[in-house]
Simulated scan of single mutants.
Amino acid sequence: MTDNSLIISSEWLVANTANPQVVIIDCRFSLADPELGEKQYQESHIPGAFYLDLNRDIASAVGAHGGRHPLPNIEELADKLSAIGINSAETLVVAYDDSRLAFASRLWWLLRYMGHSKVALLDGGFSAWKATGYPVTNTLSEPREGKLVVKLQPDMAVDIEAVKERKDLPNTVLVDSRESERYEGLREPIDPIAGHIPGAVNYPWQAVTDETRKVRSTSEQKQRWAEVETAEEIIVYCGSGVTACVNLLSLEIAGIPDAKLYVGSWSDWCSYQL
């Protein structure tokens, strides 16, 4: 383990790939090429890992509102997770991707939202695993019997009405997780409107990791959030509720729990302005 229980090293994982109490999930994905992640998994992945797709498994179909990556059907996801051997309160889920935790963090947040707190992320992702020379395989993992019982934590998520109601309160901080150019409205490659929610402050999600894509230390995470740590409420958003989860992870590492995800994020907010 690293200096916190939310992030694990390749060294720890390689010693635990056969541990029946550990389930590894590959979350690799590309917004530019939605089929790429699963192709990469089929070609090469950590032995024993299962694959979950951002669009098919950890998000649901896009509607007029609700953002580009609405939450999945929770019971359906629970069934999928049970079928790969996850047991409530017992199984440690280890998620990884190759995008600085962008997609693995979404699964980390979802599992906690569903009441399963035993989940960690692989530091440095698949690239770090390969760089160590640890084994990879193209053998698809066999289903395993498990039972994940959902104990939903509804206070972890907010919708647009809650954001409108609370964003200007003196003890609420609204965090925009996108890169600064998108926050400032200088560039918008995905959504139809540029800019940010009025009153939001900008903490780009990429800063949670360093140049090597490893998660920065606990002390660095604490320093990063020093200006907002006394807030009574922190609401975090991004473009579609995915990369915001990297900031939620950072806040958790920094010892600032209970921050909330605006699930629809900017893609939901700006849909009401069209």
Rank of each mutant, 00 (worst) to 15 (best):
N4M: 14
N4P: 04
S5P: 04
S5R: 15
S9T: 15
S10Y: 10
W12C: 05
L13D: 04
V14P: 00
T17Y: 04
T17Q: 11
N19H: 03
Q21H: 14
I25F: 04
I25A: 06
L31H: 01
A32L: 05
G37W: 02
Y41S: 09
Q42V: 13
Q42H: 15
E43W: 06
S44G: 13
S44E: 15
P47T: 13
P47H: 13
P47N: 13
A49I: 06
Y51V: 11
D53V: 11
N55K: 09
R56W: 02
A59G: 10
S60L: 07
G66I: 04
G66C: 08
P70R: 02
D79H: 07
G85E: 11
G85F: 14
N87D: 11
T91G: 00
V93L: 06
V94H: 00
V94D: 00
S99D: 11
A102T: 00
H116N: 06
V119L: 03
L121P: 05
L121E: 02
L122T: 03
D123N: 13
F126S: 05
A128M: 12
A131C: 03
G133T: 05
Y134D: 01
Y134T: 01
R144C: 07
K147H: 09
K147Q: 11
L148S: 08
V150I: 05
D155C: 10
A157Y: 05
D159V: 00
I160R: 03
I160F: 02
E161V: 01
A162R: 08
V163K: 05
P170G: 10
P170T: 10
P170W: 08
D176E: 02
E181H: 06
E181G: 04
E184L: 12
P189T: 10
I190D: 09
P192Y: 04
G195Q: 02
P198R: 00
P198K: 02
W205K: 07
D210L: 03
T212D: 14
R213G: 13
V215P: 05
T218W: 10
S219A: 15
Q223K: 14
E227R: 14
E233F: 10
V246D: 08
L248F: 11
V263Y: 04
S265Q: 12
S267G: 07
D268R: 04
C270V: 14
S271D: 03
